[in-house]
């Protein structure tokens, strides 16, 4: 459906130098051993040190991108919505290890507290002292798209004007080992991790991009939807995670080439789209409208149009 929701700011931590760095594309990094690990900023420059001590790595991804995306905007936030595919895998594994190795005494609760999916959005709320609507969406394949859907549903409501939408996932040595074994049953991929955060608003003033269309369609109708949208808007690129192209005559960018594959990679893809609309990326010439298409293995697709 057509939407008129505006993006006021965006921030990304990824395997590229994307954090607070408009010139990230001057030095595009390649994966090492099929893995795209994040280039992490110095968190002490971003987050209050008293908080850093109590945070796991994924919380740092989430909160840093949240703080960074709020720097550009001076708006009261009416909702904090985060997406994650696998949640805090590192804390979860640590707690499991200690649970099975311990003798007698209960383990330290810190890693248990940090293992829950909502700990990222919760830490963000505590840090921002935000008592607003707060939720965490999870899904194996399209958590970011479902969280974006949740955000857009909220923005239908007069109670909501500005929403902080974030997404992140991490990889750990154990997770890589397990994914490698699972992938023996499917195609091997470049694994990645990272996160991004956006401020969405119903207000157009000073926005950096607009979400012009967002809808969920059956995957076999995605190409037809792309056809209709490309007739309506001058579409410069189609962004996807996978290889499938949805239109022969429109250049196709696979954002996983930059960030690797992970459940919330689409958040980094969405960030890349917003970046392309606003910067001079030599690899991708400045664009007017970009379509993002994501589909899951159950035959559902999300189609998003972003433009200036």
């Amino acid at each position: 459906m057509k939407t008129q929701i505006y993006i006021h700011s965006s921030s990304c931590i990824s395997a590229q130098h994307t954090f607070a760095n408009p010139a990230w594309h001057d030095n595009v990094l390649k994966p090492e051993n099929n893995i795209y690990k994040c280039v992490e900023p110095d968190y002490t420059n971003i987050i209050d040190s008293a908080f850093i001590r109590r945070m796991n790595r994924l919380q740092k991804f989430g909160l840093s991108t949240a703080i960074s995306s709020l720097q550009r905007v001076n708006k009261a936030i009416d909702a904090v919505i985060f997406a994650t595919g696998r949640g805090c895998i590192d804390s979860t594994c640590k707690f499991l290890e200690r649970m099975f190795n311990r003798e007698g005494l209960p383990v330290n609760p810190a890693v248990f507290i940090q293992s829950t999916h909502n700990t990222i959005a919760a830490q963000t709320a505590i840090y921002l002292k935000s008592k607003a609507y707060n939720t965490t969406i999870t899904d194996n394949q399209l958590p970011f798209e479902l969280a974006l859907d949740n955000a857009l549903i909220c923005l239908h409501d007069n109670d909501f004007e500005n929403i902080l939408l974030g997404a992140c996932d991490e990889i750990t040595p154990q997770l890589l080992d397990i994914l490698d074994r699972i992938s023996k049953f499917g195609k091997p991929e470049i694994y990645g991790e990272g996160g991004a955060c956006f401020i969405l608003s119903t207000d157009s003033t000073d926005s950096i991009a607009e979400i012009k269309y967002f809808n969920s369609v059956p995957a076999d109708e995605a190409a037809a939807t792309v056809g209709i949208l490309s007739a309506e808007y001058a579409v410069d690129y189609i962004f996807t995670a996978g290889k499938r192209k949805y239109a022969e005559d429109i250049p196709h960018i696979r954002y996983t080439d930059y960030f690797g594959n992970f459940p919330t990679s689409a958040a980094c893809g969405f960030w890349l789209a917003v970046d392309c609309l606003n910067s001079r990326n030599p690899a991708i010439s400045r664009a007017g409208n970009i379509l993002l298409v994501a589909e899951n293995r159950q035959g559902a697709a999300f189609v998003t149009a972003v433009g200036k």
């Binding site: 939720t135 969406i137 999870t138």
Partner: peptide
């Protein structure tokens, strides 16, 4: 089902 989503807020 036309829509499947999971919420995890403790």
């Amino acid at each position: 089902l036309n829509y499947i989503s999971t919420i995890s807020t403790a």
